[in-house]
Design a protein around this nucleic acid. Structure first.
Lengths: 186, 186
DNA sequence: ACTTTTGTCGACTGATTAGTCAGTTTATAT
DNA sequence: ATATAAACTGACTAATCAGTCGACAAAAGT
C-alpha cells in the first residue's frame, strides 16, 4: 500500500474515533507508519488531508453504489437497487459512513463547492422526475423526496448498527423498509 | 444573565461553528465576557463544559416539546403534537439542534449513560406500544418505529433549513410530512 | 554517468492550549 | 461590624500542536 493511502486510512479511523481536532497529525503519521514530514509531503495542511479524505471516501461510496445497483427495468427496482447498495455499503464500511456524517456536520463542508455536492444527485433527481411524469411517484418536489429517502437510509443504518442482527434479518429489514418507503412516495 | 449561563451560550455558538477542539476555552471565556479562570470555576474541565451543555440543551428541548405538545385525545393527534413541537423547536433553535447532532457524533456521547439516553424515549415507546395493541399502528418493533420517525424529523428539518420557506409553507410541509409518516406506520 | 525530481525522514520551532494559582472582590452569615 | 465563604480575575506554565527544514535516498530523465 502506498504511503499516501496508508495516511488516509489511518486518518479515517482516528478522525472517526477522536474527531478532527482531537487527532494530531503526529498520531496519524505514527499509525500510518510514516514520518511526520511525509504526511506534509502528501498533504500541505491538515485541512487538505481532511478534505481529500472526504473526496476519497465519497468516490469510493459512489463507485460501490454504481457497481452494485445495475440498471433494472422498472423504476421501483432501480430505486431499490440504489437503496440497497447504499445501505450495504454503509454496513460494510461503518467508519467511512461515519466520516461522511462527521464531515458534513463540520466546518470543513464549506470547503466543498456547491456543484461538487450536487453532482451525484442529478441522476437520482432525473429518476424521480421521470417517476412523477409517469404518475408512479407522488408529485412532490424532487429535493424533498430525496431528503425523505436519504434520512430514511440514514435512520435505518443507525438502527441496524445499534441492533446487530444476523445477515438474514438485516436483509429482510432493509427490504421491508424499502417497501414502506416506496408506499410512502407512490 | 449569570456568568455560568453566559459561558454556556458562548460555548454553544462557538462549538457549532468551529467544532469542539476548534474552540479554545479562552475564546469561550472571551465571548462570554468573563475571565479565563471563571470558566474553570464553573466547569472543572473543557469536557465537563461540553457534557453540561449537552444536558442543558437536551432539557431545554424536552421542556419545549412537553410544553407545546399537550395531551390530545387521539393517538394520532398526540404523536402529531410531538412531531410538530420537535420540528418547531429545531427551526427556532438551529444552533441547539445542531449541537445535539454534533455531540451525538462525537466521542463525548459515551460520557452519557445508557439510562440518560433512554429516559426521554420511554413515554413515546409506551405510546407506540398502545397504538400497536389497539391495531392502529403496524406491529413493528417500537425502537424501529422510533428510528423511522426520528430520521423523518431530522430529514425534514434539514430540508426546511436549506430551503428558507415562508412560515405558512413550512407549516404546510410539516403537516403534510406528518401525514406521509402516519400513513407509513399505520 | 550525471543531473533533477520526488519521496522520506525526524529533530526542531513558534504558536497555542487546557488548566493552575495567588490574590482580589463580592456576597452571605453571625 | 466582622468573619467566612463563594465568585472572580488574569498572568502564568507545562504540554501539545501544525507545519518547517536540511539531509539523505531512490527514481526518473537526459
Amino acid at each position: 500500500m502506498e504511503k499516501r493511502e496508508k495516511i488516509l486510512v489511518a486518518a479515517l479511523y482516528l478522525f472517526v474515533e477522536f474527531g478532527f481536532h482531537g487527532t494530531p497529525t503526529s498520531k496519524i503519521a505514527q499509525k500510518a507508519g510514516v514520518a511526520n514530514g511525509t504526511l506534509f509531503h502528501y498533504f500541505a495542511t491538515k485541512e487538505e488531508l481532511i478534505v481529500a479524505l472526504y473526496s476519497e471516501v465519497k468516490m469510493q461510496m459512489a463507485a460501490y453504489v454504481m457497481q452494485n445497483s445495475k440498471l433494472e427495468n422498472s423504476l421501483k427496482e432501480t430505486m431499490k437497487g440504489q437503496y440497497l447498495a447504499t445501505l450495504y455499503f454503509s454496513l460494510d464500511n461503518k467508519s467511512e459512513f461515519k466520516y461522511m456524517e462527521l464531515f458534513g456536520l463540520s466546518p470543513y463542508i464549506s470547503m466543498i463547492s456547491e456543484e461538487e455536492t450536487e453532482k451525484n444527485k442529478k441522476w437520482i433527481y432525473d429518476l424521480l422526475r421521470k417517476g412523477i411524469t409517469d404518475k408512479i411517484i407522488k408529485p412532490l418536489p424532487v429535493d424533498y423526496l430525496l431528503t425523505l429517502m436519504s434520512s430514511h437510509t440514514y435512520g435505518l443504518n443507525q438502527y441496524l448498527i445499534i441492533n446487530e442482527f444476523p445477515k438474514a434479518k438485516q436483509h429482510q429489514l432493509i427490504n421491508d423498509t424499502f417497501e414502506l418507503l416506496w408506499d410512502m412516495i407512490t
